[in-house]
Amino acid sequence: MNTLIRRLAAFPLVLLGVSSLVFVAIRLVPGDAITAMLGTQAGLLTPAQKAALAAYFGLDRPWIAQYWHWLRALLHGDLGISVTYGKPVLEVILQRFPLTLELALLSMAIALVIGVPAGVYAATHAERRSDLVLRIGAMIGQSTPSFVFGLVIIYVLSAGFGVLPAMGTFTPLLKDPLANLGQLILPALTLGAAFAAAVTRIARSAMLDVLSEDYVRTARSRGVPARGVIWRHALPNALIPVVTVSGIEFGYLLGGAVIVEQLFALPGLGRMVLDAILQRDYALVQGTVLFIAFNFMVVNLLVDLTYVWLDPRIRARG
């Protein structure tokens, strides 16, 4: 309980640090927002008009003042207005976020469903042929870039079965679950493949460690059959590193998966933030980065809570 409150208290500090970093970083990129916004038409503006526009968006003031202004608005729940969308930043983000969240969750589910049993199987068959096959598979899965997977999946489906993944407008889950799933399953598989490979590798090595522990031998000496030894005694002890790795991967996915979103034409956070950077949409970039950082911290917190749930020793220390 104590730890939880301490962790929550750290949230604002981390967010402040992240926000100031991104605030400075994006302003160090050459080029200005007005030019980026208006494209070639910017050349038609007189310097006076440009200055007026900059003053309108508050871009003419010193960075510190801009930051202070932004921070004060933030405290009132206002992330500012996105210049590209002409809408409040939070609204733009929340519109994109469900897809990213769903994609991340789906990928993680795929990764765990495949990775954990594969890792356990590899560990219990260590140094045998099946283990070798799984290890090589995991290595390939982890080292292949996701767009390669995505392209292969798309190619196999379209060339082999004449099916094309539904692209274009995204269907929210609640509107039409089946259509939604149909849209997301392939990108989720693409992302899940590398994720599953990471989970397999970590689950295998954690299981190997645990299987040589004294308490596993004790369980065997008590007559627990192989299945019970592996799934009831060993696996719960091997899950902590799996949770760690899954948490980190999941956290990254919540920041959007630019390449896979691009490949499957999905309107997720990744593409949005990329566009925002290219457009010098300061408010949107700042807001999104803050949002991503916040998500990352929430995921980290969830990971830690999972540890506590998994291991009574951590509970005692908490």
């Binding site: 004294d214 004790t218 369980a219 000496s221 008590r222 059959p225 192989a226 719960p236 998994l310």
Partner: peptide, 27 residues
């Protein structure tokens, strides 16, 4: 092995050296 795991615990019991590490920490 199936026969052995019926014998282990039921007919042959075993106690180990390190009680701290010989019991499952999460159970």
């Amino acid at each position: 092995e199936a026969e052995l795991s019926r014998i282990r615990g039921a007919e042959i019991g075993m106690i180990f050296q390190e009680p701290m590490s010989s019991l499952n920490p999460v159970k």
